[in-house]
Design a protein around this nucleic acid. Structure first.
Lengths: 210, 210
DNA sequence: AAATTATTTAATCAAACGATTAAATAATTT
DNA sequence: AAATTATTTAATCGTTTGATTAAATAATTT
């Protein structure tokens, strides 16, 4: 056994600081986060934060890197699976992301805000340019679908925006939505659970219209 | 004529500072914006900024207030018009918002980020709780529609999220989308122009499915 | 031309913030 | 028990930042 001292990997001090940093950064954004906030949230002190991670920016880079990996993670496995239909892929994707977003509702706004501040991060801090042209199986399936379908063609970019927008936007707009409607987080999450099944149907309806 | 000295209202120094503040705040957010940035962007100096607006926060409040008014503005006029059909209202709304977002692509991410930081702003800094229960005409039209339609009913909240998500999300995700696809802003805007006509159709297809 | 107002200059303050350091103490390992 | 490692304490440094001030200059009005 390698794990004798630390029962769980996230029991180490370094990991606990990283966890705290993740929470604070994700909730407040880089600029509004003070290193002292992270110290307080972690239960350790300022000196130790810098002892482990050298600087605020280095700690942020690590947090952001892991976040982006969380986001990209397992997408490829879903999207590149020859065993599932296009329809099934959409269902799995939406379910997967809504589950993740219910657990991490701040993630989209945080990531999109920081990317906007520094889009070069996508290629510098993450090797996100690797799978650029990988000829994913889902692309092939998409092309087959639009070919065998005798409807006016739709720009795939539109459908991706629709799919991602319908899935992610409610979480980005959640504070506003909840404020306006008086919805609780629980009620909101019930709606999100409903959307797991609804969004694929809606995408389907859009594809088969006219 | 009241406007002899200043040909345009936005020729005054106060207005030019406010404009600069709007640009910087909207692009970088409150926390990442330094008062010195606003001074530089306005062409005036730090002392004058504080001379006119007392503090960074006061200036921010004004900017945010005007932004929220921009967002809410004319919605009521569209949504509460008894002369137009529900379908027509959706078309006008989408067109109106996409036009506005092409001119102000940073607005949604900025507003939603700052609202998230301080949701109480919606009622404190803006009188956004006035038109709370105003029994808008569009609500009546919606109820009529779902009544005369013999399809399974959909929670209106879902449809609003879909409509707003499909309209606004592309602008929020624009930096990421453009980075991934290599799209230029012009190409992106062409897509957004297309969506003016497409989104109402998609909403329609969703409403009439099953 | 004189008076008033707008804007700049430059210096400065106080507080906040990222970061470092050295020494003290606690916890763990050997 | 001794040695090593982890963490705290507390002080401090240098910089940034929001904000203020007083005096000088420019622009506008009277």
């Amino acid at each position: 056994m390698k794990e004798i001292k630390q029962i769980e990997k996230n029991d180490s001090t370094e990991e606990k600081i990283k966890q705290a940093a993740r929470e604070v950064f994700t909730q407040k954004g880089y600029a509004a986060t003070r290193t002292r906030d992270i110290a307080e949230a972690s239960g350790y002190n300022l000196a130790l934060i810098n002892y482990y991670f050298r600087s605020k920016e280095k700690l942020f880079d690590i947090v952001m890197l892991e976040h982006l990996q969380t986001f990209v993670h397992s997408i490829l496995g879903i999207v590149d699976d020859p065993a599932t239909t296009l329809q099934a892929k959409i269902e799995v994707l939406v379910t997967h992301y809504i589950d993740m977003l219910i657990k991490n509702p701040d993630l989209p706004l945080f990531i999109l805000s920081e990317i906007k501040q520094d889009p070069s991060m996508l290629i510098s801090k993450v090797g996100m340019d690797k799978m650029q042209h990988k000829e994913l199986y889902i692309v092939q399936q998409w092309n087959e679908m639009v070919a065998t379908r005798n409807k006016p063609s739709i720009n795939p970019a539109h459908m991706i925006m629709n799919l991602v927008g319908m899935t992610i936007f409610p979480f980005i707009g959640s504070p506003l939505i909840r404020n306006r409607t008086g919805m609780s987080i629980e009620q909101f999450n019930v709606l999100m659970e409903e959307r797991k099944k609804l969004i694929p149907k809606w995408i389907n309806a859009i594809m088969n219209m006219e």
